[in-house]
Design a protein around this nucleic acid. Structure first.
Length: 501
RNA sequence: CGGGAUGUAGUUCAGUCCGGUUAGAAUGCCUGGUUUGGGACCAGGUGGUCGAAGGUUCGAAUCCUUUCAUCCCGACCA
């Protein structure tokens, strides 16, 4: 940033919001300015700051409740996985091998030349340990001990944890080397039950992302090439960022008996016969925060849906001296209590070291849904100024009605934000019937519904030529046979293509 | 791992081509004062072994060599 405009942060953010020109830079700066996260002094990792973490905690708590409602329990498995575990499932190891951090030694010692500590060569591990990129292997090695009979099933475990994938190019929240997530791992006696579980969790995710994050998603199933390493089916929810790219928000995998066979997990069924267990796994990560930021943010900063905003209402007093402040505070305190009783998180920012204008801008960047400003003028008139973050509309209203007005406003916003994002997304999701049109729409940042002949060759060619991938075979679409836009061969249905993060 | 760029104050950068006083600016931070209805102003102050190592030179942020790190574009990906 140029020094002159560095002093004017509103203008600075405006400059950043040439989203079409350098969206990723805009996004990064937004994350930093909104005080959510920053790059860690460790390659590819991020520091999640308190305000950002507060949002993650809300996501975590809400989802955890949903998991409990659907009969799941939390457990915890080790961070380090013996290398041999990873090689048990062929496709799985192939999928993750390229991005694993490996522990080879267990001790350091002082260098003889006094230059600091070095790895003690004598402390080399017999078998290297892998920092988990995901926990299927160690969990299935454990489940083997837990499962003997059909009476032990189903096992419905979830784990909140961090994982590490040595990604080539990290981006805050979207793709960091270390990230926080939850991973559910379930074991079932029948194929039907496992498949149902995988679909059910996809639905839980979709409901959460749409209902709480206010981000519309496309539900569907992945093509074979895009499938999770080791899965028979990968169910996905895909959102759209404001630069028209797709973002995989959550996945739920039907693993069949692959992991049960790899880790020899068998049970005796009701017919007294040995059978391999059926499995699922499903997860969402801190990437959800990226989806949230990219879906709603505007030129003034973050826009948070009320259900996930750590601070839902901020009240800013405007005063000239301590007497004024005391009068304002007396009135505000009553409102704060009333709102808290309704379960609304409210912050009264009477800090004396920041001017009102600074606070206004600051809370806007942070995406606080509702702002109330109250000064001496208002005190005399019995009014206040109220602003909602999504529309930036300000109005002066009677102070006494706030207790009722604010909860309604928050509800309205939750719906309005979703509707706005959905209208935007829908307007950029089109059916195309020719390859020229396909390329044009992909280039313009659209979700493209096009016929696909079902072959991996066509899929690969399209990716090579347009950078677009099959995001999913969306659910709930009418069966409509046609011809593949690329190969011209017969195609059973349309699938969703887009460029993605 | 390929292509491109950059490392100078807490942060963003100027200075490097063409070597020459004590290395600058803005912002931040600290002190004092005036302010406070949309990111305040004035005055003073703090803050840098110029990424690291070696070389050339009377003299290096600047030239040369090596090295490390970061960022961007690809490949990979929740």
């Amino acid at each position: 940033m140029h020094p002159e405009i560095d002093t004017d942060m509103a203008k600075e953010l405006k400059d950043l919001t040439k989203r079409s020109e350098n969206y990723s830079q805009w996004y990064n700066e937004l994350v930093v300015k909104a005080d959510l996260a920053e790059q860690a002094p460790v390659r590819g990792c991020m520091v999640i700051k308190p305000y950002g973490y507060a949002i993650w905690e809300k996501i975590q708590r809400t989802l955890d409740d949903k998991f409990k409602e659907t009969g799941h329990v939390n457990a915890y498995f080790p961070l380090l996985i013996p290398k041999s575990y990873l090689s048990r499932e062929a496709e799985h190891v192939e999928g993750f091998a390229k991005e694993c951090a490996v522990v080879t030694h267990y001790r350091l010692k002082n260098a003889e030349d006094g230059s600091g500590v070095i790895v003690d060569p004598a402390a080399k591990l017999e078998e290297e340990l892998i920092v988990r990129p995901t926990s299927e292997t160690i969990i299935w090695a454990t489940y083997k001990n837990w499962i003997k009979s059909y009476r032990d099933l189903p096992i419905l475990c979830n784990q909140w944890a961090n994982v590490m994938r040595w990604e080539m190019r990290p981006r805050l929240f979207l793709r960091t080397a270390e990230f926080l997530w939850q991973e559910g791992h379930t074991a079932h006696a029948t194929r039907e039950e496992a498949e149902q579980e995988a679909r059910r969790m996809q639905q839980v995710y979709a409901d959460f992302v749409e209902g709480y994050m206010a981000v519309p998603v496309v539900r569907g199933v992945k093509s074979e090439t895009e499938r999770f390493a080791g899965a028979l089916d990968t169910y996905t929810i895909e959102s759209m960022t404001q630069d028209g790219k797709a973002l995989q928000c959550g996945t739920s995998h039907f693993l069949g008996q692959n992991f049960a066979k790899a880790f020899d997990v068998q049970f005796i069924n009701k017919e007294n016969k040995l059978e391999y267990v059926w499995a699922t796994s499903w997860g969402v990560s801190t990437r959800l925060m990226g989806a949230l930021i990219m879906a709603h943010s505007d030129d003034n900063g973050l826009v948070l849906p009320p259900k996930l905003a750590p601070i839902q209402v901020v009240i800013v007093p405007i005063y000239k001296n301590t007497d004024d402040l005391a009068q304002i505070s007396a009135k505000v305190d009553i409102l704060v209590e009333a709102l808290k009783k309704k379960g609304i998180s409210v912050k009264y920012d009477d800090a004396d070291n920041k001017r009102p204008g600074f606070k206004f801008a600051d809370y806007e960047v942070k995406g606080v849904p509702v702002r109330v400003a109250l000064g001496m003028r208002d005190l005399e008139a019995g009014t206040c100024e109220i602003m909602r973050r999504d529309t930036l509309e300000k109005e002066t209203v009677p102070f006494d009605g706030l207790e009722e007005l604010i909860p309604n406003m928050l509800d309205d916003m939750q719906t309005a934000i979703f509707e706005k994002a959905k209208a935007w997304r829908d307007a950029r999701m089109v059916e195309v019937n020719s390859y020229d049109e396909f390329k044009e729409k992909i280039e313009a940042g659209y979700f493209v519904l096009a016929h696909w002949d079902g072959t991996a060759e066509t899929e690969a060619k399209i990716k090579e030529e347009t950078k677009a991938t099959i995001r999913c075979l969306p659910f709930g679409m009418k069966e409509e046979p046609g011809t593949d836009v690329y190969s011209g061969k017969p195609a059973a249905r349309r699938v969703l293509f887009a460029r993605s993060y």
